[in-house]
Design a protein around this nucleic acid. Structure first.
Lengths: 315, 315
DNA sequence: CGAAATATGCTCAGAGTGAGCATTTACCCG
DNA sequence: CGGGTAAATGCTCACTCTGAGCATATTTCG
C-alpha cells in the first residue's frame, strides 16, 4: 500500500513563516515585498521552497527567513499545511502540480528591521480584531456587508445558516466575542467576497497580502491567542525584565481585548509565572513599577502554565 | 522572493490518516497491513501519496482511505506535517528527496472492518496511556528504563534535564498525569531508545507501527484528548442516541482516566450538550437509563462546548 | 501644591468544582 | 418472592476561582 512510486508531477512544497513580535502597544508581523502580485497585495510573509539541501522543514524555514530578513528565529512552531485548490499553480506547465505550503509561527523578541523586510501591525491586516478601544468602527460597515451576503443567498435555509455563522464567529447575541476565532472570521469574509484576495475592491476587511499569506497570518494569530492561555509563550515576546503593566499591555495587544488590571496581576502572581527582581523602573509614568522576570521553573511545576484571559474589560 | 523554480528533486508528499472510533470500552484505530517493514512493524495507518488527480489534500486522503479500507470518513482534521530527517528516503535514487507526510485525524461512528483493514485498540500501541484501571503495571518497567537513560547521560546537567523531562511528561512529583501529552511521552521514549522504531528489542513501550505512523497516532490521540474538552467531538464517535453512562465510558476510554460519575452527568447536563429522548434502555445492567441525543444547537450557543474533564478519579 | 497616571493591596459575592451520601429501579439468584 | 447487586439519579457541602470594585501609595507635570 501507500508508498507508491513518485508521481511524474511531484508537488511543489513551500515554507512560510508568520514571525510575530510586540512592541509595547502594537503587535507586529514581519513582512517582505513580493513581486508580481496584483495591486495592493505586494506584501507577504517570508517564504521559500523546500530544498533538498534543507535537513528538515524547520531548518529550511529558518534558512529562508534569515536569507530574506536577517532575522534569527527563536521559538518556532508548525501551524498548518495549506494545499487546497486555489493554491494550485495556474501557469506554464504547472497545471497538474499541487502547490503546498507549510506555514509556521515564530515568536521573536526584538523588532529590528533588516534588508527590505518591514514590521507591520497585525491590525493593518485585521482591523476588526482590535477591540482594545471598544468595538472597532470598521465593524459596522463589515457587518452590514455580511448581512447583505447572508440575505443574498437564494435558498432561505442557506441564508439562515449564513446568519448563524456570522453571529457565531463575530459574536452576536448570546455568545460574545471570541478572540481566538481569527481564522474563522477571515474565512467567512473570504467566502463572502469581502477581502481583496477574494475579489473585493476595497480594504474594509483589512489590507491584503500576497498569495494566501493572510490566511496563514490569521491562523498564526488565532493559535497565538489561544496558546498564551496555557503556555507561557508571551515571554518569548518580552524583554528579559519587564513590569506587570508592560506584560499586561502586550497580552492585551496580542489578544485585542482589555483586561482588568488587578485581576491580571493576581493571576500572574499566584501562578508563579514571574518573580520580582531588585530593580524598579520609573519610566512608566506614575508610581515606579517593580521589574519582573519570567520564572522558567514554572515549566516543571504546573501542567499548563499560561494566562487564562477572562472575558475581558478595562480597568 | 519565495516562489522559485521547482527544484530538480521535488519532495514526495504522502497523506496518512489516524481513523479513530470507540466501542463501549475500547478506543480503536483503523490499521492496514504494510509490506516490506521490519518484523513487528507490519501494521500502519491508511496512507498514500498525494496525486495530481486529487483536488485537495483532504479529498486525496479520503480517496486513499476508501480505497484501502472501504471506510467513508466523516469528521476530518489536519494534524501535522511530518518531514524530518528520518523520513527521508534512503534507497535507490531518492537520496536527496524529502519525504513529507501530511497526517490527519478522522473520527468515525461505526467499527465495521473492511478489506484487510482491522480495528485495534489504541492501547495496543500505547499501553501506558490507559490509566482507567489505575497506574498500569507496565509503567514500572518503563520508568525504570527511563531512569536508566537519564542516568546514562555523560553530562550531569543533561542527566538532570532528562529527569525533569521524564517527571514532566509522565507526571511525577508535583504535577500529575496529563493525559494530553501523548506525543511528548512517545517522543521521550523514542529518544530514550525504548521503542522498536528507535531500535528497542522489545515492546515494553507498546507495539510498533510502520514508518513513523505511531508518532502520527500519538499526535492524533493527544489532539483528540485535548479537543473533547472544548469541542463536542465525542459525539462523532457516539451512536445517535446513548445513555449518559455510555457517554462517560467512551470519554473515559478516550482520555484513559476515570471520572466521577455524578459530576460528569451534572457537567453534561448543565452545559446543554445533550437532551433527553422519550426512550430508555434496560441494557445497561441496573436501573434503566434514559437515552439522550446530542443537541446540535449548542454549537450556536456556547463558544467552547466540550467536556472539560477534571483531574479524574472513579465513582 | 493639586491633578493625573500608575502601581499595589484587599474585599466580597457568585459561579464552578471535587467528593460523597442517599434513593430509585432494574435484574439475578436461591 | 425477598435480598443482593448494579446502575442511574438527586442533592449537599466545603472550597477555589473569577469578575468587579474600593482604597492607598508614589511619581511626574503644570
Amino acid at each position: 500500500m501507500s508508498e507508491a512510486e513518485p508521481s511524474a508531477a511531484a508537488p511543489l512544497v513551500g515554507l512560510a513563516a508568520a514571525i510575530l513580535a510586540a512592541t509595547l502597544d502594537e503587535p507586529r508581523v514581519l513582512t517582505v515585498p513580493v513581486a508580481g502580485q496584483p495591486a495592493g497585495r505586494g506584501e507577504g510573509l517570508p517564504a521559500g521552497p523546500l530544498e533538498p539541501a534543507h535537513p528538515t522543514l524547520e531548518r529550511g524555514l529558518r534558512a529562508w527567513v534569515e536569507r530574506q530578513t536577517g532575522q534569527t528565529l527563536g521559538y518556532v512552531e508548525q501551524l498548518y499545511t495549506f494545499g487546497d485548490r486555489n493554491r494550485r499553480k495556474g501557469g506554464k506547465g504547472d497545471e497538474d502540480r499541487h502547490a503546498l505550503s507549510v506555514a509556521y509561527l515564530a515568536l521573536v523578541r526584538e523588532a529590528r528591521p533588516a534588508a527590505d523586510a518591514t514590521w507591520q501591525s497585525w491590525y493593518r491586516y485585521f482591523p476588526y480584531e482590535d477591540r482594545r478601544a471598544g468595538r472597532p468602527p470598521c465593524l459596522d460597515a463589515l457587518m452590514a456587508r455580511l448581512d447583505g451576503w447572508a440575505g443574498a443567498a437564494t435558498d432561505p435555509e442557506e441564508s439562515r445558516r449564513r446568519s448563524d455563522r456570522i453571529g457565531l464567529t463575530f459574536g452576536a447575541a448570546g455568545s460574545g466575542w471570541n478572540e481566538e476565532r481569527v481564522l474563522e472570521r477571515y474565512e467567512l469574509l473570504f467566502e463572502a467576497g469581502l477581502v481583496p484576495e477574494a475579489g473585493a475592491a476595497d480594504d474594509v476587511a483589512g489590507h491584503a497580502m500576497a498569495f494566501d499569506h493572510r490566511r496563514m497570518l490569521a491562523t498564526a494569530l488565532g493559535r497565538l491567542r489561544g496558546k498564551i492561555k496555557y503556555r507561557p509563550v508571551v515571554f518569548e515576546l518580552m524583554p528579559p525584565t519587564f513590569t506587570l503593566g508592560q506584560l499586561q499591555r502586550v497580552v492585551e495587544a496580542l489578544s485585542g481585548v482589555l483586561l482588568h488590571k488587578q485581576n491580571f496581576r493576581r493571576l500572574v502572581a499566584q501562578q508563579g509565572l514571574v518573580e520580582e527582581t531588585e530593580a524598579v523602573t520609573a519610566e512608566t509614568g506614575g508610581r515606579p513599577a517593580r521589574l519582573m522576570r519570567f520564572r522558567r521553573e514554572v515549566l516543571l511545576e504546573r501542567p499548563a502554565p499560561g494566562l487564562r484571559l477572562p472575558s475581558g474589560r478595562a480597568g
